[in-house]
């Protein structure tokens, strides 16, 4: 698919450190894109360049093939990590103000605010001051403010922080709905597990550099280690040239859990066949690496000296 946004060799330095060091990305239109990495990796710096809060020192951002410029502001929605609204302003007025700053006409904005407030079932809040709302409510209002002007590209920085599980699910559904309607979504987060099941594509950023990017399935397959998880009953004693037990745990009542890696060319059925003869198999599945694991592996491969620091940041 054609990219809605391209970053080409973007560099950004502050007084004391380099925030982005030659980062290039392509974000396909209509996808959910995960921009992942530990705190301080440079995600927010990149987002601030995309949202035109700051500019890149070198390199270029293209929005649908055009060099990024202020006319694109109306097509981008941004939910920053630092949530904030004018506390002493009424919800309705605030939404109207923010939407109009994004280029919506008063009439359009009013109609859409009504629609969105109804969608979240919070019509009665329109006349309330923001400071009188609970934190969760404010988050909803902020989300509406982000998507009100029907942006083609929605950037959500740490989207689920601060939401309780129920509201987080509600927001997740809305995000998927927006994607289905054709919007492109960028998730930026250091909590990779919170978004990995939603992302179509990801980019991993560490220490101001991109370390990995691509469609999430491709990456996962690429990082698969041909490892399988086995649960069952009996005494598992594996001594076989084709398999290697990576981890084994005894559980109560003679149950066990094991992770078994297959050597090259060995197929899962070979293991299964072997297991069936030895123990009572209750579960058998491929161990798919989490993004977190992939990230750590990737960092270990590319820049081993920074690993401890990065791992600490992730934990």
């Amino acid at each position: 698919m054609k990219p809605i946004l391209e970053a080409i060799d973007v560099r950004k330095a502050y007084a004391n450190h380099v925030a982005l060091d030659g980062v290039s990305l392509e974000i396909p239109e209509g996808s959910i894109f995960g921009l992942l990495g530990p705190n301080g990796a440079g995600k927010t710096s990149l987002i601030r360049i995309i949202t035109q809060i700051t500019g890149a020192d070198e390199g270029e951002i293209r929005f649908r093939g055009e060099r990024l410029n202020p006319s694109h502001i109306a097509q981008i929605g941004y939910l920053p990590e630092e949530r904030g609204l004018y506390k002493k302003m009424k919800v309705g007025e605030q939404l109207l103000y923010l939407a109009r700053l994004r280029g919506l006409s008063r009439a359009d904005a009013t109609a859409r605010i009504k629609q969105w407030l109804a969608r979240f079932d919070i019509k009665e809040w329109a006349g309330k001051n923001v400071e009188d709302l609970s934190k969760g409510m404010q988050q909803k209002v902020q989300f509406i403010a982000t998507v009100l002007h029907d942006p083609k590209l929605i950037i959500l920085d740490e989207p689920f922080s601060g939401f309780d599980p129920i509201n987080a699910n509600l927001i997740k559904d809305e995000i998927l709905e927006l994607r289905n309607q054709g919007a492109t979504i960028i998730f930026s987060t250091h909590r990779m597990e919170s978004v990995e099941e939603m992302c179509d594509n990801i980019a991993l950023i560490n220490r101001s550099r991109k370390v990995l990017d691509g469609p999430i399935e491709v990456i996962r397959n690429q990082f698969k280690t041909n490892t399988y998880e086995v649960e069952g009953r009996g005494k598992l004693i594996l001594v076989h040239p084709d398999f290697e037990v990576v981890e084994q745990k005894e559980r109560e009542n003679g149950h066990f859990y094991a992770r078994v890696q297959l050597h090259d060319g060995v197929r899962p059925n070979d293991l299964l066949r072997y297991l069936i003869g030895a123990v009572e198999v209750e579960a058998f599945r491929e161990k798919i690496p989490s993004i977190n694991e992939i990230f750590i592996r990737r960092v270990r491969e590319t820049m081993p000296e920074t690993l401890t620091e990065t791992a600490n940041a992730l934990l």
Partner: peptide, 10 residues
């Protein structure tokens, strides 16, 4: 109130 970033993106 941390609204700066929202404003500055507009």
């Amino acid at each position: 109130s941390r609204i700066m970033e929202v404003m500055l993106s507009s």
